[in-house]
Write a protein that binds this DNA or RNA. Structure first.
Length: 161
DNA sequence: GCCAACGTTGGC
DNA sequence: GCCAACGTTGGC
């Protein structure tokens, strides 16, 4: 199975790229609380171990991609949905009838240059990338290999894909 | 803090 | 099953 590429949004407040590297065990973050069906389907069905992730920081002064992560654990039931005290609790989900899924991502590589959304919007080759479309809210987006490589080169690194 | 878009909910 | 109301996302 060919390796795939994704863009995953994370609110800066929830976990920055630096926090992922330094503050999480083994530099690995557990992606919890996705409550959108399209994003859920990607997590459950399509995202595979070894896939590359453009780690995207949203809801901050300069939204953009600081670097790369990689999928280290494929879709598994999101435990936050089962926990009544959790903000993401969903009574419609249970271990018997799982609604929502998690993946784990590991910090991989920081770009030499931060690639801001603004720069991506200004790059004609990225015009059909989802993240640059107006009002594109989907928090997990498939990325083509071509777009992935362009973003990496904007970030000043070369990735052997 | 504003506000457009869009997903979800719930009354009918 | 329609659709209005409401909530959330997220750039600006």
């Amino acid at each position: 199975m060919a390796r795939k590429y994704w863009l995953m949004k994370c609110e800066l407040e929830a976990c920055s790229f630096e926090e992922l590297k330094h503050d999480r065990p083994n530099s690995t973050g557990k992606w919890r609380g996705v409550r959108n069906y399209q994003a859920r389907n990607f997590i459950r069905d399509e995202i595979k171990e070894g896939d590359w992730v453009l780690f995207y920081q949203s809801n901050c002064d300069t939204p953009g991609v600081p670097g790369l992560a990689q999928i280290v654990r494929e879709g598994y039931p999101d435990p936050s949905a089962f926990d009544e005290k959790n903000h993401y609790y969903d009574p419609k989900s249970s271990p018997e009838k799982v609604q929502w899924y998690s993946v784990d991502v590991k910090w991989k590589r920081k770009f030499k240059n931060y690639v801001s959304l603004r720069e991506m919007k200004g790059t004609p080759e990225l015009a059909d990338m989802r993240v640059v479309q107006r009002f594109q809210r989907l928090s997990i987006q498939p990325v083509t290999r071509e777009h992935f490589e362009i973003v990496c080169s904007m970030g000043g690194i070369k990735v052997k894909a």
